[in-house]
């Protein structure tokens, strides 16, 4: 409490102490009425909607990181498909095949050519 309060509180503090000690108490009937009011208000107020469980696809979508990650994945998948379909012909068209063919097992090719099987 500020000093200015203390300066002129010497006379009144005893009355304020008494007032705090003798506060008006609510009756049991009042407490019951207030409880009833609370129940009545709660009954009139619609309960807030419960959060619904997300579907499996939505959970997967969130797990992956939302739309930026899903967009990246879709782009990568489409690029993979395009490469798988179009690259061999496109890359080899009009070029020297030997420049692109690497024989990783020449001995096996020899054996097969020699009919040693």
């Amino acid at each position: 409490m500020a000093m200015s309060d203390r300066d002129d509180m010497s006379g009144l503090e005893v009355f304020f102490d008494a007032a705090r000690a003798h506060a008006a108490e609510p009756s049991v009937a009042l407490m019951a009425r207030i409880d009833e009011d609370a129940q009545a208000v709660a009954a009139q107020t619609p309960a807030p909607p419960r959060p619904r469980r997300a579907s499996l696809s939505t959970q997967l979508y969130r797990l992956l990181g939302g739309w930026p990650a899903v967009t990246g994945l879709a782009t990568a998948a489409m690029a993979g498909v395009w490469l798988g379909i179009s690259l061999p012909e496109g890359m080899l068209d009009g070029a020297n095949e030997s420049a692109y063919l690497i024989d990783v097992a020449p001995e096996l090719a020899f054996d097969l050519a020699g009919g040693n099987f």
Binding site: A23, A24, E25, P26, D35, A42, A47, P48
Partner: peptide, 22 residues
Amino acid sequence: FANGDGAAARALNLRLTPRVMG
């Protein structure tokens, strides 16, 4: 209480009503 918990209303009643009444 707003989420439908009746016990919260009773706790608030016991805690606040005496202060409000006083």
